[in-house]
Design a protein around this nucleic acid. Structure first.
Lengths: 236, 236
DNA sequence: CGCTACCTTGACGCGAATCAAGCGGCGTGG
DNA sequence: CCACGCCGCTTGATTCGCGTCAAGGTAGCG
């Protein structure tokens, strides 16, 4: 029996253990491998666009993706962030709908596209995958609702602190244990926090002066996480 | 064979056709009837509370429910609204989690509670129900993300107009075709829009002076929906 | 009939958006 | 290799939306 291999084999994919396809039976893995393709996206490229019809399920093999929507005046709002092992585009797929946000690579990324029909057949027979995706949507909803409360009740300082902590929770630190393992433009941070670029710049430089964070270009270091937590007024 | 009947039989329930239990096979209907109980909630009573563990799935037979969370300073934020035929509490149930918002009756309501274990077995064998609930969560997520964009990009006037249109879309009008078929306190409207009570009062009275809405106590009439749409800056 | 909860209006002040201008780095092309 | 130009970053000045505080009105209910 020959070892089937494509761009990178799902069976040996190190990212899979973090994904919804963890614990997939070997047979399904072989099939999955047959019905997926790997795509490379350069930083800034769009994985999919708002209002487009889904072609399949996107699985991030390696990279960082932002999901964002645009308001009436064209201003962007970052809604979610995704990393290695995350799947994106499942909402539109499951509800047989168009994408209602766009996905953009924050850095060069490798993404696997699982064919739509295969995905449907997979969740049909493999409940485990389906329930994992449901759990994902549920936690997205929870996060979105928390975000709603933050936006309507917290000021820019608090939301900025929250955002920095969220970046840390999502992407972690570099080896130094301080610097965020992700870079955004100031405008992107503003689009995440829901404020203006200038306000973000002022807030970051204030945190910088307070020695709570360090700034060197786009590299942001979290020097004092407990204080950030206090600034953000989060309970846990 | 005896006709099994409890508080109100699911088989003959008029609300069911609007719910996720539409098209349920007769056998399952009988079972559903056995595993549910009807509960009456007076206006203002809580159906369930944030952080509680779900006992089952709540189905609104007749009534209006608000789902709301609280921010760090105790201020409430209304996250969703539910009406006849809607189910609530499915997110916590599906992700085996605690409720992360509270449900409160906006008026006297009759609500059926479907036992947790029966619900699990039902969605396990009846994919139709499961997919309907997934579609529900998906649309909740979409709505939440739209709300995020609104909150971060629109001002109080625009969001208030949006809210009024949303109330109309959810609960409709009274027979006069003008008056909203729901009443909130000014504070509740503020908690929905994400602003202060005073700001809502001022905004409503401005709309009132512009003859876009009419106010008589808590009764709100939408006199000029197209203009409200313009105020809200919604596209469709 | 009086109390309480809710609604309303006005005055004030702060946070943050906006506008405007200068800075710095980086890539491109001469 | 340097100069120019563009884009993102930064800072200051100004404006204004809206949250907050305070006070008074109204309606429903015991």
């Amino acid at each position: 029996m020959k070892n089937v291999r494509e761009h990178s084999a799902c069976a040996t994919c190190g990212t899979r253990s973090m994904s919804v396809f963890d614990f997939l039976p070997p047979d399904d893995l072989v099939e999955l491998n047959r019905h997926k393709s790997c795509i490379f996206f350069k930083k800034g490229q769009n994985v999919f666009n708002e209002n487009a019809l889904p072609q399949g399920l996107y699985c991030i093999n390696k990279g960082k993706i932002k999901l964002s929507g645009v308001g009436v005046d064209g201003k962007e709002q970052i809604l979610r962030l995704a990393k290695d092992g995350d799947v994106i585009g499942y909402r539109a797929l499951l509800s047989n709908d168009r994408y209602h946000c766009s996905a953009t690579a924050l850095e060069d990324s490798i993404i696997c596209l699982v064919e739509k029909d295969f995905f449907y057949s997979l969740i049909d027979k493999n409940k485990d995958v389906l329930y994992k995706i449901i759990a994902k949507i549920s936690s997205d909803l929870k996060a979105a609702e928390d975000q709603i409360i933050s936006l309507s009740q917290k000021n820019v300082r608090e939301r900025t602190a929250e955002a920095l902590l969220f970046f840390k929770a999502t992407y972690g630190f570099l080896d130094d244990g301080i610097t965020l393992n992700v870079t955004f433009s100031r405008e992107e941070i503003a689009d995440f926090v829901g404020t203006s670029t200038e306000s973000i710049i002022r807030q970051l430089s204030e945190f910088n002066q307070d020695k709570v964070i360090s700034l060197q270009g786009k590299k942001i270091g979290l020097l004092n996480v407990p204080k950030l937590l206090k600034y953000a007024r989060v309970l846990d």
